[in-house]
Amino acid sequence: MTQLVYDGSFEGLLTSIFELYERKIGDARVVRNGSYQSELTASYLEIIPDQKKAERVWNGLKQKLSVDKRNEIYQCFLSELPEMEGTLVTFIRHVFDSKHSVEKDYSNKSVLAIEQIAHKVYREKHRMEAFVRFQRTTDDLYIASIDPDFNVLPLIISHFQERYADQHWLIYDNRRNYGIHYSKDTFSVQEVRMEWEAIAHHEFLPASTCHEEELVYQSLWKNYFQTINIQARNNHKLHIRHVPVRYWKYLTEKRTS
């Protein structure tokens, strides 16, 4: 067996698939750099991301798959799940090796698996569109920290860019240590990384960096959230199914202090 070790980028993954075909490797495992473990019985091949090779694979997929299915491949990649590479390789091989379109063949395991992983990622994306809570700073930047299960920042850019076109904002992924910053002057989004122990690493800003009205609005929102609950209908199970506890520390209305 051959282990193809790539750098964890999407381009790297597509390059790996190119090499599988180029070198006619049948029995292979594609693994991320960090999760590589040497195995006695396997040979080792380091993959260097190559834009041209990746594009050839992607263009090949364009011939075979609808845009929705290609998006699912990318979403699946963003899941970062340990079985992600294996599932994608099996699926993409199945696509290339079939004469007809297979994307709706839900009786095939890999077709269904791709859709199910992509669906999980989509749900997390949707959750982040819902659960981001901006705090306004003294210099009029709206900041939010998140800690999503999957790497969904690339998927939520367009949503926030369109919605909050007239305010500066920053959404920071604390787990993956990078964020997206939007400037209302240039209307553009940039990826940013904090090298130091910066403010965005806290779930909530210290009062000194908050805009003068920020804490008032947080408290108005918290009280609103409490008031609109109908006690006679309380349903804790349903509540935590919709708002899982792991997200609470970033939600203004669920914050205990």
């Binding site: 659960f131 369109e162 919605r163 349903l238 919709h242």
Partner: peptide, 26 residues
């Protein structure tokens, strides 16, 4: 849509930003 680069857009699907303790969408 937010063509004028003002505030907000509405996407068709709607978003529940939170859920009260009785399990209803906010």
């Amino acid at each position: 849509s937010n063509d004028s680069k003002g505030l907000g857009h509405t996407t068709g699907a709607g978003i529940c930003h939170s859920y009260t303790e009785d399990g209803r969408c906010v």
